[in-house]
Each structure stands twice: as structure tokens, then as C-alpha cells.
Amino acid sequence: MHITCHLRPIELCVITLRVILVLVCGLLFLAPGIWSSGGYATAASVPPSPVQFAQTIHTDALGRQVQLNDAPQRVVSLVPSVTETIYALGAQELLVGVTDFCNYPPQAQDKQSVGAYNSPSIEAIAMLRPDLVIIAADMATPALLQTLLELKIPVYSVYPRSLKATIEMQRDLGAVLGCTAAGATLASQLEQAIAQLNQEVERAGAEAAPRVLLTIMLEPLVIAGTDTLPGEMLACAGGINVATPGSRYPMWNMESVLAFDPDIIIASPHPGTSSPRDFFLRFKQLRAVQQGNVVEIPADWLQRPGPRIIKGLEALRQVITDAVTHTPEKINATQR
């Protein structure tokens, strides 16, 4: 008697639990519609971005077929060079979100930031309710891409790793952002700049091509190889890269610089590091030091595949022609 009295509440609990379980199971089996229609079905039947605009299918840099509104209204750029390109297209009104690294043009920094280039905040992106997010193909982790797609946010990826790809990106971004004409103009400006440089270089002749070291950073000494955007720009401007053909961003040391003894050394000043001139001036026997051909060009002109590439190309050409006209006989004498 005592025992049953003690057990009764427990039994009650067990019975109640069973009833609840049976009910829940019954609901699960009998009305599966509750689960699907409550959450996903609604989302599917009422899309967050109702179709008000005509849509076009674009193929992005990841090879995905992306269906996008012809005129997106709220764009988030997760790529600094894309942000620059959007400003150059005159489409900055559409831009609602950028990254911490989007520092050009200066007014881009007034836009809402969604975090770092490589680790943006998904929540910050979602809060901006974008109808287009532009990402870099090499920075798009599958997880980031998947999450954005699950949130029904259209994603377009770019991968500008060469001059050709940069030209294409400018044209494609114009098409994606509903300003096709501006995109075509921007792309043809760069094409023309390249064509003009090619002519100039051809006129100057191959013997006037100096050997150039293109540094990315000094400590440690990382240089741009031939298979990079800055390397391609250097070749386009008529310089011969001293780096091993086919290389990307190898780490060098001063011994290699002394051994190759380039005619021109190009470096980019970075805040917080020693000045490129001082770094190389320690070695007076370097030809580039003796002839005053240690030159600084801003990193963004050479490394950001955006509209300022043209400035970079012009600066490179200027450096090369200056070096050749000031010391032509010495440079020619060094050709092997």
C-alpha cells in the first residue's frame, strides 16, 4: 500500500508522458503538413523578394547559373575591388553594405560595413536585406555561400586574377547591376589603355626592356611572380620580371636580389613598415640603387583588380621609360 502510494505520482508522470508521446507521434504521422507548411512552404510560396523586375540568368566566376533581377536595389559588396568598380560605374546608390577593407573611394567607408573581407558577419548582411551579394570566388567558403543561399539572398561571385578577367568583371558587373553601358565603357577604357601600352612597348623595341623586381612586401621579402596580376601588368608595361617564370608570390631574400641585380625595384609603401627606399639603400652595389631606380607605387594600383589598374599600368610604364631614357646604355649593357 505504502509502496503504491509512493509510486503513484511517478506512474502518473509516466502515463502523462506516454500520452504526450502518442499525441506527438500521431500528429507527426497524421499531419506531416504541419511541419512543412508552417515553415518552408510559406517561404516558398511568398518569396522575400517578390518578382517585380525582369530577371536574367548570369554565369558567375564559380560557374553557377544565377538568376538575378535586372535592376538590383540593395547590393552588398564583399570585395574591395568590386566596391571600387561599383563607384566607377556610378552605381554607388545601390550599394548598402561593404567590408572593412573597402577603403576606396574614401566615401565607401561611410557605407555600412559587414565585417572583414574574409569573415563577414552573416547577420549584418542579412539585416541589410540585400537583393544581391557580390563575393570573391577565392574567399567564398562553401559554408558562407550555402548560408546566404539558404537565406534566399542571391549571390554573384567574381574572380579577377588577370587583366582579361578584370575587363570581363567590369563588363559583367555593369550587366548585373543594370548599368550595362557604364560597364562596357569602363571595360573598354582598360582595354584601350592596354592596347596603347602594347603599341608603345612595341615601338620602343625589346632591347629597351629593363629587368624589374616587383615587391609585394619587404619583411619578409615577398615578390610578385609572372603568374600574377601585378606581374602581368609589368609585362604589359614593357618590363621583364626577374622572378622565375610561372611563379606566383614567392618569398625571396636579399641574396637573390643581389644575384639578379634588377635594373628597377618597385615597392609599395605600407604604413607601419620600414620605407622601401631605406630597405634597399643598405645595398649600394645594387644597380637599381646606384641609378636611383628604387621606385614606390601604391600597392592598390597594382594589386586591386579595379578601375585604378589603369593608374598602375601608367605608373609602371612611366617608371620604365624614365629608367630607360636616363640610363639607356647601362640598361642595354646588362641584357643577356
Binding site: E219, P220, P271
Partner: peptide, 15 residues
């Protein structure tokens, strides 16, 4: 830029 330098510094460098 300083971040990149710092990461390289952390990796160790005898140069």
C-alpha cells in the same frame, strides 16, 4: 597591412 606583417612575423623569420 600591419596585420599581414604581424602574421608573417609570428611565423618566424631569420632574414
Amino acid at each position: 597591412d600591419p596585420m599581414r606583417n604581424a602574421l608573417f612575423w609570428l611565423a618566424g623569420n631569420l632574414a
